[in-house]
């Protein structure tokens, strides 16, 4: 591989791609600290837009809703997804149908799942709100948790389970002392990934949150702000949201060395 490559060309490609990837978000980041709030002129460093955010009740409310959705759906998805992963990996026989069902939530276009759930809930006359967003988020979150945990289980040496039994441990003790410690980093990594996805998810939340103002999530708030009147405080909000996701992902990566989520 390396003998194939011209180092100078490779460096040029990497510089160009990284510039393309990082200039836009860096600009946002810088802009959030610009006193004047406009991209055209730097008028001085200031955190006043962050102050504006804190005073904006709508945004605080939306942030609270988002956390609520993310925490509850991550909690449910982590339990369901981990059990699913263990179940699938214990089962030696691999069913194509089963694989499709588990894989589907990750590849169905968001808009399709969104309208399907909207139709489903309204057909059942369910009042929509945060609870329907949570239920919907669990669908894709559990699939992602499952795939992260399964990746870890694929390299899991099942003979250590037999070894534990051979050494006299009961099944629950084996699960507790042997299987769980090996799996735990992957479970936490999966949970962090699910949390990130949930915090950032817009389309499904947008369709399943119902019409009430009190079930607006942060991405919905951001969408509305971009669409109907950009104010400088959105830069600050964007920077915060970006930082939260990136920190959660970095943590997830640290815990789950050996494979990137989504790979």
């Amino acid at each position: 591989m390396r003998s194939q490559a011209n180092p100078r060309l490779m460096l040029m490609i990497l510089s160009a791609v990284f510039a393309f990837l990082y200039i836009p978000i860096s600009v946002l980041f810088a802009l959030s600290f610009n006193e004047g709030g406009l991209p055209t002129a730097w008028t001085g460093f200031s955190v006043k837009w962050y102050g504006e955010l804190v005073r904006n009740d709508e945004i605080i409310g939306a942030a609270f809703n988002t956390l609520m959705v993310a925490i509850v759906s991550t909690f449910l998805a982590t339990i369901l997804g981990t059990l699913l992963a263990v179940g699938v990996e214990i089962r030696r026989r691999k069913g194509r149908f089963l694989e499709t069902i588990i894989f589907a939530p990750m590849i169905i276009p968001d808009i399709v799942l969104a309208i399907a759930l909207l139709s489903f809930f309204s057909m059942l006359n369910v009042t929509m709100g945060l609870h329907t967003v949570i239920v919907s988020h669990v669908v894709f979150n559990l699939a992602f948790v499952c795939s992260v945990v399964r990746a870890r289980l694929k390299t899991f040496d099942w003979s250590i389970v037999e070894a534990s039994t051979d050494l006299g441990a009961s099944t629950p003790i084996t699960l507790w002392r042997v299987v769980l410690p090996v799996m735990l980093p992957a479970v936490i990594a999966g949970a962090l990934l699910a949390f990130t996805l949930s915090v950032d998810e817009f389309i499904i939340a947008f369709f399943t949150a119902g019409a009430g103002r009190d079930s607006i999530t942060l991405p919905m708030q951001i969408f509305a702000m971009i669409r109907f009147g950009i104010t400088p405080e959105i830069n600050a909000l964007a920077t915060i949201v970006m930082t939260v996701s990136v920190v959660a992902l970095a943590l997830s990566q640290r815990l789950n060395r050996g494979g990137l989520p989504g790979q």
């Binding site: 990837l21 951001i222 970006m242």
Partner: peptide
Amino acid sequence: PFWSNYLVRTYAWIV
């Protein structure tokens, strides 16, 4: 960047 918010990344291009 893939793991930062999609809306935020799109918004960056508006800027």
